[in-house]
Structures are given as structure tokens and as C-alpha cells.
Design a protein around this nucleic acid. Structure first.
Length: 154
DNA sequence: GCCAACGTTGGC
DNA sequence: GCCAACGTTGGC
């Protein structure tokens, strides 16, 4: 059982978009970073939980909780010339990009803002990857302690 | 293998 | 819109 944080720009794909998806489930695709890919491909397991984080928006915040319902598998979009995520350099016989499927467990309302998280950047969340300087990873691990603490803020 | 140039991320 | 930080690319 692991915990994660998934970033998404709500203009592109928000918690509400996931809620509207069939069975509130969707591939977490479009990730084009090797570190993030490796986590999805190698470390995520069915049943893991994740925060759904809204980035690059008015109020960056954790807006929901998702559950991983399918472990890492080759991302279809990367191999689909019609997809905006198409990657011509990815060999279909040896796919470069992977995704997992996530299901919305519940929205967090009101969302837990980045501002709130930062208040604990020198305390309980001192080691949180999301808060690290210069962090740009779109998928980051969350420790069990961080997970519990953040839930207590909701 | 180095590293400058460039593109992207993401908070502000 | 700005800019710091970082990843990727490609020439050498």
C-alpha cells in the first residue's frame, strides 16, 4: 500500500472531469517524465491511494482522492498518431510511456490549498516532495505519515 | 561525456 | 507576464 500525489492542470483535466468519466475512472496519461513514468510503471499497485492536485491555476490545491485500479501499463495515447500525446519516437514494440488507471474515491471540499500545505513545510511536511524547492515532478510519492497528516487538515 | 541552448513547469 | 528551476537535446 503506497500513497502518491498526482498533479494536473484543472483546465486540462480536473477532479470534476474525473468525476464525469465512466465509472469515475480514467487512465492517468500524458506523463512525459522518466522519473514519473518509472513510478507508474514499477511502483504503483492496485489499491494505492493518491491525492489529486490542481496545479498551475488560481488556487493550487489538493482537490480529491483517487485509488489506483490498474497498475502500470503501456500508454495508448503515445502510440496513437491522432492523440495530442502521440510520441513518434516511441516504438510500439517497446513502449516508452506508461500510465495507470485511477478512480475517484472522493472530492475534497474545500480543497486543501498549497498555501495551507506550506504552513507545515517546516513541520510535519518538511520532507514532502511536492514542497521541495524546484520540484516539477507531475507524480510524487507521499509517505503514510504525510498522508495522514494532510487528511487531518481537510 | 560535457555543456550550452532551449523548452517546460508552475508559483507568484 | 515573469522568472527560477530543471529536464532534454544535440554539437563537439
Amino acid at each position: 500500500m503506497n500513497y502518491w500525489l498526482f498533479k494536473s492542470e484543472p483546465d486540462t483535466f480536473s477532479v470534476d472531469d474525473l468525476a464525469r468519466a465512466r465509472r469515475s475512472t480514467s487512465p492517468w496519461d500524458g506523463v512525459r517524465n522518466y522519473q514519473a513514468r518509472n513510478m507508474m510503471r514499477d511502483q504503483m499497485t492496485v489499491g494505492d491511494l493518491g491525492f489529486f492536485y490542481h496545479s498551475s491555476c488560481d488556487v493550487p490545491a489538493i482537490a480529491g482522492i483517487v485509488r489506483i485500479v490498474r497498475a502500470g501499463y503501456p500508454e495508448r495515447a503515445a502510440l496513437d498518431p491522432k492523440s495530442r500525446y502521440f510520441d513518434a519516437a516511441s516504438d510500439p514494440a517497446k513502449p516508452r510511456w506508461y500510465c495507470v488507471d485511477v478512480c475517484l474515491e472522493r472530492k475534497i471540499e474545500p480543497p486543501i490549498t498549497l498555501e495551507t500545505l506550506r504552513k507545515h513545510a517546516h513541520g510535519a511536511l518538511a520532507e514532502m516532495v511536492l514542497l521541495r524547492r524546484g520540484n516539477r515532478l507531475s507524480v510524487t510519492p507521499v509517505t503514510a505519515d504525510e498522508w495522514r497528516f494532510i487528511l487531518s487538515l481537510a
